[in-house]
Amino acid sequence: DESNKPILLPNESQSFERSVQLLDQIPSYDTHKIAVLYVGEGQSNSELAILSNEHGSYRYTEFLTGLGRLIELKDCQPDKVYLGGLDVCGEDGQFTYCWHDDIMQAVFHIATLMPTKDVDKHRCDKKRHLGNDFVSIVYNDSGEDFKLGTIKGQFNFVHVIVTPLDYECNLVSLQCRKDMEGLVDTSVAKIVSDRNLPFVARQMALHANMASQVHHSRSNPTDIYPSKWIARLRHIKRLRQRICEEAAYSNPSLPLVHPPSHSKAPAQTPAEPTPGYEVGQRKRLISSVEDFTE
C-alpha cells in the first residue's frame, strides 16, 4: 500500500519547517483550565467582593489541597506544564494547583491565590483569567444561592456549585447557560463527603469543560472538536499529503500518493430520524474511523 510507505522529508523547505513548528504547539495530551472561586458570607451577589477574597475557610483550604498538586509557578516550564496563561514571573501569584493523568493536564485558576492589587480596583487582572475559563468551581460559603452570571465573562458556560453542609458533607450541583443544557445535566445534585469532594468536583468540572469545548467549536462548523492527539494525527497526515504533492510536482515521474478510497458502495440502511441538538453535539466527541485508517 503506497499510502503507508515511509517518505523522504525535504531537506530545505520553509513550509515544512513551519508545519513542524506548528505541530510542536499541539500538545500530545488534552488540556483544561478551571476557575475556582470562594464566596464568603454576604458575597453571593457581589463580583468585586468575591474576586477580592485572599483566603477562605478551613474546609475550603482542605478542598484545594485535594484538587491537585501545589506547584510554584516560577519553577514551571510552560512547554511541559500546562498553566492556561498564568504568568511565571509573579504577575498572577506564586502558587497554583494542577492535576494530570496519562492523557490530560488541568490547571486551576484560583482567585484566592492570585494577588489582590490596590491599583486594580475592579480586579481585572484576576478576571482576565477567571472570566475566560469555560467552567468555574464555586465554593459557596455564603449561606445564600449563587446565580450564574454573578461573575461577568463571555465564556462562563458552567458552574460547579459546592455548598458546604453539616457533618462534613457538601451539596454539589451544576448550573449552565441555556445554550449548554443539551450537553450538561443540571437536574441531579449530589451529597458528597469532604473527603471525596475534590475528586467529584474535579471530575464534574473536567466533563463540563470538555462539553464546553465542543459547544464552543460550533463557531467553526468545519472543524469538529477532536482530542489533542487526534489533532496531531490529522496535522501529520495533512503534512504527509502536502509533501507527496510537492514531490510529485517537482518530479512528475513519481506517483502521487493519495489516501486509500473505498470503491465499494456502502450498504443501504433504513433512514433514521434526524438526531436532535443534544445527540449531534455528543457525537462530535467521537472520532471518525477515517482518522485511523487513511
Rank of each mutant, 00 (worst) to 15 (best):
V36G: 00
S217K: 05
P115E: 04
G42T: 03
R69N: 15
E290D: 10
V39C: 04
A201F: 00
L148N: 11
I286P: 13
L83T: 09
K74R: 10
V88M: 12
H129W: 12
L239W: 06
H215K: 07
P78N: 12
I137K: 00
G143S: 04
R238T: 13
T96S: 07
E91N: 12
S57V: 00
K190W: 13
Q25G: 06
M104A: 12
L148C: 15
K5V: 15
H32A: 14
P259H: 14
C244F: 11
S253G: 13
M210R: 01
L285T: 13
E17R: 12
D166T: 03
P6K: 08
K264Y: 12
D166G: 03
N251T: 12
E144F: 03
V200I: 10
S187Q: 11
Y249P: 06
P252E: 13
D118L: 08
S187C: 06
Q94K: 11
D223Q: 07
N156Q: 14
R59I: 00
I137Q: 00
L206T: 02
K147N: 12
F63V: 00
M210T: 02
V200P: 00
K147S: 13
L206P: 00
H216K: 04
R282M: 12
S261L: 08
G90I: 04
T65M: 09
R218Y: 07
K117N: 10
I191W: 05
M114L: 05
Q241M: 07
I243R: 06
G66D: 01
D120S: 11
W229T: 11
T61F: 14
S57R: 01
T31Q: 15
G182T: 08
N11K: 07
V289D: 13
K117I: 09
E278K: 06
K33T: 13
D75H: 12
E168T: 03
C169V: 04
L148W: 15
P266I: 14
A208G: 03
S261E: 14
V160S: 00
A248Q: 07
S173F: 06
E72Y: 09
K147P: 11
L206N: 00
R195A: 11
Q43Y: 02
G93H: 12
H109L: 06
L83A: 14
E54R: 04
N251Y: 13
K237I: 15
D24Q: 04
S52L: 04
L206R: 01
Q203Y: 02
D24H: 05
E246G: 14
F155K: 14
N170K: 01
K190C: 15
Q25V: 04
Q43A: 02
G68F: 03
G280Q: 09
N220L: 05
I191M: 11
R195W: 04
H32E: 02
L174Y: 10
D1R: 07
E12I: 07
S217L: 06
I243Y: 15
P198W: 00
T61G: 11
Q105W: 13
G56H: 02
R195H: 09
K283Y: 08
G131C: 15
F134P: 02
E290Q: 05
I230Q: 09
H55F: 15
C124A: 14
V20E: 08
L233G: 12
I34A: 01
K152D: 13
V214E: 02
V107L: 11
A111I: 02
A111F: 06
D133S: 08
I137E: 00
V39N: 01
R202K: 05
D101S: 02
K126A: 06
L165G: 02
L73T: 13
P252R: 09
I191L: 07
